[in-house]
Every structure is written in structure tokens, then in C-alpha cells.
């Protein structure tokens, strides 16, 4: 049955009954706790990514590797990152594979991808939340591509370590939407600093955001943060 399903992947495309792949779905669940069978299944799936099969078939394979992929699948997935058609589904797997090799591959890909694909890689690094990615994202805060710069800013707000907070100090976007995203990221970092007991550092982030030049909702948020940092109840 499993062999037939892998055979079906060769002609699988939009409109094919998904039931033909059900044995692979079943194997994903059934091999949990059986490392030898799972390794074999992973190897077979990853091999499909290098074959001449449809985008839809590779899309399906990436979904399965999201669930069971390990460091062994990373090279096959990383090879798809520059592809306009397949980059997202490669990240669909790489973002969720816990092996550090997946994060490393995404960071390395920053040098070889551009445009939307680079935005995607940045968001996946943010989604993984590894502190090792902060330096890479920090370098992109002033990227010439505003979409990449915005993704880096939002990503640093997701990772929200003290290093991320420092990196955000250099984010000075001109675009109004990007400005608010940078403020959001800074506030997120301040919340993390506060939660870690670093009140003085949090206050340093909040204070300039509470000034009269900021929109009302930003002033409100920063003021609440300052109150919390001073030990007063915000609401």
C-alpha cells in the first residue's frame, strides 16, 4: 500500500483524489516511536523533492516532512528555498523541524535568496525563535528592500531577547505602517525585559514611546508599560 502511494505521488497533481496518499498519512502516524521505520519513511519522502514530480506532489511531501522531518531532510528542503514556487512549502517544513540544522539552513539561505523568498526566510527564522538568528535579523533591519527590513523588525519582536531589543534601536523606517511595526516590536521586547526583571532596560524602551509625538494607542501602551515597570497596576 505504501509503495503504491509513493508511486501515486509521481502523477499526483491538483484534482487527484487525496485518498491515494492515505497510506503515507497513515505511515506518518504509525511510525511514531519506531525510529527505523520513520527514518526510512523520511528518506523516501525527502527523495521525492529531487524528482520530476508536480508542485502539488512536493507540496504534499513538505507537509509530511513538517511532521516527521529531521536534520536528514534539511538539505533537500533547503535546496527549494530559492524557488518562487516551492520556497514557502520548504519553509513549511523547515520552520517546524526542531533540529538546529533547519535553523542553520535558513540562516545560510539569507545569502542566496531575495525579495519575497527572503521575507519568507526571515519570518521562518522568527517563527523558530532561536537566539542564534538575532544577529542575522539585526543585519537586515536596514535592508535596502523595505519588505525584508520590515520582516526583520517584526521577527526581532517575536524573538524579543535583550539582543533583539538592542538591534531594534537602529530600526528607523519612514513608512508609516513599518513605523508602527517597529514600535510594536520594541514594545514586545520591553514586555520580555519586564518579565525578566530588567525594569531599567524596559523603561528605556517605553519612555520615548510615551512621548506626545506618538499616536494615542502607542502612548497608552507605553504608559501602561512604564506603570508596570514601576510596580503600579496598569489597569
Amino acid at each position: 500500500m505504501l509503495d503504491q502511494a509513493f508511486e501515486a505521488l509521481k502523477t499526483y497533481d491538483w484534482g487527484t483524489d487525496v485518498a491515494v496518499l492515505a497510506p503515507i498519512d497513515e505511515a506518518v502516524v504509525a511510525t511514531s516511536g519506531d525510529s527505523a521505520s520513520r527514518e526510512q519513511l523520511e528518506r523516501r519522502l525527502a527523495a521525492v523533492l529531487a524528482e520530476d514530480v508536480s508542485r502539488d506532489a512536493k507540496d504534499y511531501v513538505c507537509r509530511k516532512l513538517m511532521a516527521i522531518g529531521t536534520a536528514a531532510s534539511v538539505p533537500a528542503l533547503a535546496a527549494l528555498l530559492p524557488s518562487a514556487e516551492l520556497s514557502h512549502m520548504a519553509r513549511f517544513a523547515l520552520e517546524r523541524i526542531p533540529a538546529p540544522e533547519a535553523g542553520q539552513a535558513l540562516r545560510e539561505a539569507l545569502a542566496s535568496v531575495a525579495g519575497s523568498q527572503k521575507v519568507g526566510v526571515v519570518t521562518s527564522l522568527a517563527g523558530r525563535g532561536e537566539n542564534e538568528s538575532v544577529a542575522a535579523l539585526a543585519r537586515l533591519v536596514g535592508d535596502g528592500d523595505p519588505a525584508v527590513a520590515r520582516a526583520a523588525v517584526i521577527g526581532l519582536g517575536r524573538i524579543r531577547t535583550p539582543e533583539a531589543a538592542r538591534a531594534l534601536e537602529s530600526a528607523k523606517p519612514a513608512d508609516p505602517q513599518a513605523k508602527l511595526e517597529a514600535i510594536d516590536a520594541r514594545l514586545a521586547c520591553a514586555e520580555a525585559l519586564l518579565a525578566a526583571g530588567k525594569k531599567a532596560e524596559a523603561l528605556a524602551v517605553y519612555k520615548p514611546l510615551a512621548g506626545p509625538q506618538q499616536p494615542k494607542h502607542v502612548r497608552l501602551g507605553a504608559t501602561r508599560g512604564m506603570l508596570a515597570a514601576s510596580g503600579k497596576k496598569a489597569d
Partner: peptide
């Protein structure tokens, strides 16, 4: 834990 979230298609950022 892999199912906590999913990668979003570029250029969408959360």
C-alpha cells in the same frame, strides 16, 4: 509541538 504553528506564505508576516 511542531503543530503549534505553521509557516506563512511570503510575503505575509505575523
Amino acid at each position: 509541538n511542531r503543530y503549534l504553528d505553521r509557516a506563512r506564505r511570503e510575503p505575509w508576516v505575523l
